[in-house]
Amino acid sequence: MTTADLFDSIAPFYDEVHHQQDDIEFYRDLALECDGPVLEVGCGTGRIYLELRRAGVDVTGIDVSADSLEHLRDKAAQDDLAVDVRQADMRTFDPEPGREYALIIVPFRTFLFLQTVDERLAVLESFYSALGPDGRLALNAFVPDPVFVAEHYGEWRAQELEVNGERYTYRTRSTVVDTVEQRVRIRTEVLDANESLVVDSSYDLSLVSKAEFELLFRLSPFASWEVFGDFELNSLETATQEMVWIAE
């Protein structure tokens, strides 16, 4: 199953599962601070993208999932919001000729879908080339924590949802599938009220440490970068925090 297939399958449930993330204000404030258009990579069903549009930001969104983008467009239409979104992969996205972005955001660990060093460097170079003078890149990723992996990977984590008046159980399980390349697989299942399986899909993420991110930025065209431990830009001190990177 491709990443696009996965997110197509969970698109109807995505907003209910991920509506409580605390990153929206951070990315919105960054977008409002910059002088120029914004690109959101992995805009999905519009959790962040639509908040940027409501704030008046000139933002383009890309995502691999056509179904997720359809949900985004439906929500935008309900609020009479004009949107500029398209189906594209960050590995191959080609910006409009002559369009330079003041800010590129890659929220909610989307960068971790890149599986190799070559892919990560190529995408960073592509991001850099799409930025205008003084442009910035912002992304976030979890801190790989071997203690958490040892204690919790392999367990199902479930939550109850209500979507369009129907009850569902949404559950995920993470397992390490490649200890050398540091790759994990997240399996997602959705069961209806009769406990019938309506979604069964999985995707792989890479475990990328702070040191590896540092090396990637050193090898990239970016001139400077900072890492923080949360969306309030506190220092990164523990593995329970979220890495928040800003590069220029």
Rank of each mutant, 00 (worst) to 15 (best):
C43N: 03
Y49G: 01
V83E: 03
L81P: 01
L39C: 02
A66R: 08
E51V: 03
D84W: 11
D58C: 11
T45E: 14
L69G: 14
D67L: 10
A77Y: 14
L72A: 06
G42M: 09
C43P: 08
V83P: 02
R47P: 06
T60M: 02
R86D: 15
I62W: 10
E40M: 00
E70P: 04
L52A: 07
V59K: 08
R86E: 14
G46M: 12
G56W: 02
T60G: 00
L69D: 15
E40T: 07
V41G: 13
C43Q: 03
Q78P: 09
I48Y: 11
D67Y: 07
D63V: 02
D80P: 02
L52Q: 08
A55C: 05
L69F: 13
R53G: 00
D79L: 01
D80Y: 07
A77D: 15
L39N: 00
A76M: 11
V57I: 12
R54I: 11
K75R: 15
A77V: 13
R47V: 09
D84M: 06
C43I: 09
G46D: 13
R86M: 15
D67E: 12
A77G: 12
D63G: 11
D74M: 08
A55S: 14
S65F: 15
D84T: 15
R73Q: 15
L50M: 12
V85C: 10
E40G: 01
D74S: 04
V59E: 05
T60S: 11
C43F: 08
K75N: 15
D67A: 04
E40I: 01
Q78L: 14
V57Q: 09
G61Q: 13
D63E: 02
D67C: 05
E70K: 07
A77P: 12
A82K: 13
L50R: 00
K75V: 14
D74V: 06
L72F: 07
L72V: 12
D63F: 00
I62M: 02
I48P: 03
D80G: 03
R73L: 10
G56F: 10
E70R: 06
V83L: 03
A77C: 13
E51L: 06
A55P: 09
V64C: 00
D74H: 09
L72G: 10
A76R: 00
